[in-house]
Design a protein around this nucleic acid. Structure first.
Length: 141
DNA sequence: CAGCAGGGGGCGT
DNA sequence: CGCCCCCTGCTGT
């Protein structure tokens, strides 16, 4: 009976035997349940070595550290803008270039490409150093 | 931009 | 199996 009860996402009918007793979510793997349980306990086993923040998931920490290192692995192929997270980049592409997802051109073909643009404007280092106005600009793109 | 929550897969035991 | 890691979508400031 337990193997067919609803899981957290509702999509995916995998058996979920491991149930959280704080909330009613269930998971396919014990380690997933254990990971989930610490969002109730507030436990944060992954501290950042550069600042004093901590995370409940290692991947969250890894992404966070990129903020300190300035690493920006995900690059927009249309305007060469860099991002720390892929989903943020995807969102940017959709909004700035109205480009849903399946590669190849979309709407605005008038794009001579902004290759050297990032160099002349020093885009890599200007990001949100103190002022919050850049944040507002992000919504335009 | 930054962080959270969950799914799935690979690898060692 | 069990654990660890990476990826992805969504939410928050």
């Amino acid at each position: 009976m337990q193997t067919h009860q609803a899981g957290p996402s509702l999509s995916s009918q995998k058996p979920r035997v491991f149930k959280c007793d704080t909330c009613e979510k269930a998971f396919a793997k014990p380690s997933q349940l254990e990971r989930h349980s610490r969002i109730h306990t507030g436990e944060r086993p992954f501290p950042c070595t550069l600042c004093e923040k901590a995370f409940n998931q290692k991947s969250a920490l890894q992404v966070h550290v990129k903020k300190h290192t300035g690493e920006r692995p995900y690059r927009c192929e249309h305007c060469a803008m860099g991002f720390t997270q892929k989903s943020n980049m995807k969102l940017h592409v959709k909004r700035a270039h109205s480009y849903a997802g399946t590669l190849q051109e979309a709407v605005g073909q008038q794009e001579p490409v902004g290759e050297e643009l990032s160099h002349t404007l020093h885009l890599e280092e200007v990001v949100q150093e103190t002022g919050g106005e850049w944040q507002a600009l992000a919504n335009v793109f």
